[in-house]
Design a protein around this nucleic acid. Structure first.
Length: 552
RNA sequence: GCCCCAGUAGCUCAGUGUGGAAGAGCAGCGGUUUCCUAAACCGCGUGUCCGCCGUUCGAAUCGGCGCUGGGGCACCA
């Protein structure tokens, strides 16, 4: 409703201004926004400020002229019933929805049900999101957990807006880190047999490796030291991968595709990608190594793709991976990385450009770090000493719902302080419970109402007229806009902000007005409103992967 | 030295996309319970939007120079 109205208001403005004037204005001048203060109406436009210089008039004066033109145009477009009035205030054009427009919002939601807020695009955009992609060398960290939450919800959001989304985990299943993991496991195994064998430099000291060695003894016996290192690597990697998959499954995250680096290599894609670069003249030999001329595409310096010892650098498989994805016809490739990788963005973009591929369609977002705290005090973490709280432990301590919600409460650009005590608390301080409680409250109300009540009535929605009631409906109307903006910006946190606002409006409404009363027509109208509210809460929580409980 | 992120109320942070009307939660103080869940609600906010300069009719938002905190700058992944 709101978006349709926005478009039509913009069209009305265009009509009243005329094409030459519209073309002379900066892009976006005719846009409508939703003001925070209800005194400024439901939609506002600041076009008068843009017109002021060329007309040499005060914005307020221009706005007053536009009010008349706009009102006339609205009548012509048959929108008069949707807008009570258009007024000029402080130079702004403020449009106020009519009661009938608000009623239409409630009807729309009940009609669309779970589909409210979703949209279809044709043709659908194909988007690949690559995220988490943790090395299978140990437990997932709380930072991986944040990437999991952001990526998963982003995938759901983009799907809700009509995109075809592939959620992908890039699996680093070979190379130096896996080798170190295998060596560490072998060393722990040998130590368990009483041998003096040290963990290699840069190896994995975490207790989980020793546990893994213990299991190996129990299952396979004490005669494994003759096995080649590769066998230990394979064992260790498979076990850690299984843990990662278990954790992500527990989190409710499903990846559509797991792409293995080993597969990229054995299928010849890495050599093929290097061949492409070679043919395009982007590679050269120097200092006994092979270099990519990435400075041609904005990188600080050229990068080695094949080392002096003949081994490939990590850049080579990444180039192959992106070439392969682009061949599959994705319109957009979105990668979520940790902040330690941000310096890697220019060289990867350069590499993609060097392949002759559209680098602007590769989007990389950095998900900033997470720190944990209890009662306002930071939880100390030392990765070197192997003392850190894992993603799994957080999920188990505070529950999946709270974990997901907390991970999404900040923009991914911001460092996140995750308060474990707050996430566990069952009070209004805890935003998860605050939102879920609104949903459970509505379920409780609907449980008390006899079904026949709202089935019999065609609810007189015109009676939903009190300020708190209208405030609630206005927020309900914004839901589709919120989804579109979040999906468009690749930034899901706005949805948690929105749901808190929606829950707040509902709680205020609930405390001010009784839903079920002796006044049956009014009750029917309010029941329709709370059903619509429940629907939007459920839809929004569903996109977050957070439960919408019927009781708490 | 270079790059990225952050800096807004006592604390934690929205708002920066597309310049346009300074916000929320917590903490603190004071209220609300014959009622569909008090896991709730209501009231109380003068703040150097880190600083300076610039662009503009207009800057928390854009540009430049700095400051503070965090992260990153490999022939590691």
């Amino acid at each position: 409703m709101i978006e349709l109205l926005e478009q039509q208001l913009t069209r009305a403005l265009q009509q009243s201004l005329g094409a030459p004037v519209v073309d002379s204005l900066p892009l976006g001048s005719l846009q409508w926004e939703m003001p925070k203060d209800p005194a400024f109406g439901d939609l506002s436009c600041a076009v008068s400020f843009k017109l002021a210089p060329q007309r040499k008039q005060a914005p307020q004066q221009i706005a007053e002229q536009l009010v008349e033109a706009l009102t006339a145009a609205l009548g012509g477009l048959g929108l008069a019933s949707r807008c009570d009035r258009v007024e000029a205030k402080g130079g702004y054009l403020n449009v106020f929805f009519s009661q009938r427009a608000l009623e239409a919002v409630v009807r729309d939601i009940l009609h669309a049900g779970p589909g409210y807020g979703r949209r279809r695009l044709s043709p659908a955009r194909a988007i690949n999101i690559e995220f988490v992609s943790a090395n299978p060398t140990g437990p997932l960290s709380v930072a991986h957990g944040r990437q999991a939450a952001v990526g998963d919800v982003l995938a759901r959001l983009l799907r809700s807006q009509g995109a075809r989304v592939t959620a992908e985990f890039y699996l680093n299943d070979e190379g130096r880190q896996i080798e170190l993991l295998g060596q560490s496991l072998k060393a722990r195994y040998a130590q368990a047999l009483g041998r003096d064998e040290a963990i290699p430099e840069g190896g994995y000291h975490g207790g989980y490796v020793a546990e893994s060695a213990g299991r190996l003894r129990t299952l396979e016996g004490d005669a494994l030291l003759e096995r080649p290192l590769a066998w230990f690597c394979e064992q260790a990697m498979k076990e850690q991968l299984q843990h990662i998959q278990d954790d992500l499954g527990h989190f409710g995250l499903h990846f559509d595709r797991w792409t293995s680096q080993r597969w990229l290599r054995t299928s010849g894609r890495i050599e093929a990608a290097l061949q492409t670069l070679q043919e395009r003249g982007m590679l050269y030999e120097a200092e006994d190594a092979t270099w990519l001329a990435s400075t041609k595409f904005g990188d600080d310096k050229d990068r080695v793709v094949r080392k002096r010892d003949g081994e490939l650098t990590y850049l080579a498989p990444d180039i192959a991976y992106h070439q392969w994805k682009f061949e599959q016809g994705y319109d957009t490739m979105l990668n979520l990385w940790g902040p330690d990788h941000h310096g890697y963005i220019p060289r990867l973009k350069a590499a993609v450009a060097a392949l002759g591929l559209p680098a602007e369609r590769l989007a990389v977002r950095i998900v900033q770090l997470v720190t944990l705290s209890r009662q306002g005090k930071p939880v100390p973490m030392s990765k070197r000493a192997g003392e850190f709280v894992t993603f799994r432990e957080v999920m188990e301590e505070v529950g999946v719902d709270a974990t997901r919600f907390f991970y999404l409460m900040r923009t991914m650009d911001s460092h996140l302080d995750f308060d474990l005590d707050l996430a566990k608390s069952r009070s209004k301080d805890n935003p998860v419970y605050y939102v879920q409680y609104a949903h459970a409250r509505i379920c409780s109300i609907l449980g008390k109402a006899r079904v026949a009540w709202w089935a019999r009535w065609r609810p007189p929605l015109q009676r939903l007229a009190e300020p708190q009631t209208q405030a609630l409906i206005r927020v309900l109307a914004q839901y589709p806009v919120v989804l579109r903006l979040c999906a468009g910006a690749f930034e899901p946190h706005g949805l948690t902000v929105y749901l808190r606002r929606l829950a707040e409006c509902f709680h205020v409404f609930y405390d001010t007005h009784r839903v079920i009363s002796e006044d049956q027509p009014l009750s029917a109208a309010r029941l329709a409103l709370v059903r619509a509210t429940r629907q939007v809460l459920a839809n929004g929580l569903g996109l977050l992967g957070v439960g919408a409980p019927r009781r708490m």
